[in-house]
Amino acid sequence: MLELRLIQGSLLKKVLEAIKDLVTEANFDCSATGFSLQAMDSSHVALVALLLRSEGFDHYRCDRNLSMGINLNNMSKMLRCAGPEDIITIKGDDGTDTVTFMFESQKQDKISDFEMKLMDIDSEHLGIPDAEYQAIVRMPSAEFARICKDLGSIGDTVVISVTKEGVKFFTRGDVGSANIVCRQNTSVDKPEDSTVIEMNEPVSLTFALRYMNSFTKATTLSEVVTISLSSELPVVVEYKIAEMGYIRFYLAPKIED
């Protein structure tokens, strides 16, 4: 028996909008600790990892570990039918091959049930070791989204470099080149507006902008984005989800061939 009730249903709506274009179908894993997902995009260049911890739900019942294969596009279609203030409950059962999304309006005067068939998805789970990063940049998520969008209009790849001057985003295309430098800036009245750069050593890596612009669809989930870089590892772009978890995007770099 599975019953997860999320008062802030909009979080789930935003999560689906953030991942449905990157990954078409995935297994949602439900366990006592929470509701999670790990999936790669079709070209195995990027990986998304989602965790919504059980204590973040208003009611969390998961009798046995359950894995639900879902087409994310279809799930997104259903969640779009939920209002921004609706309470969303996910119901499943290990016996049935369906999942139900229940939407309750705030005034409890409208209850909707959307039922979807589950799919069999064989997805190998990857072990993601905790790593030491050479540089970690924490900045306003809207700022990062704007930079990726702007650079995406000039070139296809972005070179992200962290030095003691700050974090640099560089691209070059047919029309020319663009270079954006963001400096450490903690002298702001709101902490979420600050840019904090933790650099253990300088690092510079190249990534495909189309993936970065796909990740920034998660901007609505958090005012802050954290970008962790290491020359030996994929970049991690992380958006925290209001005290209940996170959505992390991992992207493999491009190298000079």
Binding site: H44, V45, H125, L126, G127, I128, P234, K254, I255
Partner: peptide, 14 residues
């Protein structure tokens, strides 16, 4: 051009 690496090369199969 650059060579795009894949993500599964970095993580281990569980």
């Amino acid at each position: 051009g650059d060579l795009q690496l894949i993500i599964s090369g970095y993580f281990f199969q569980l």
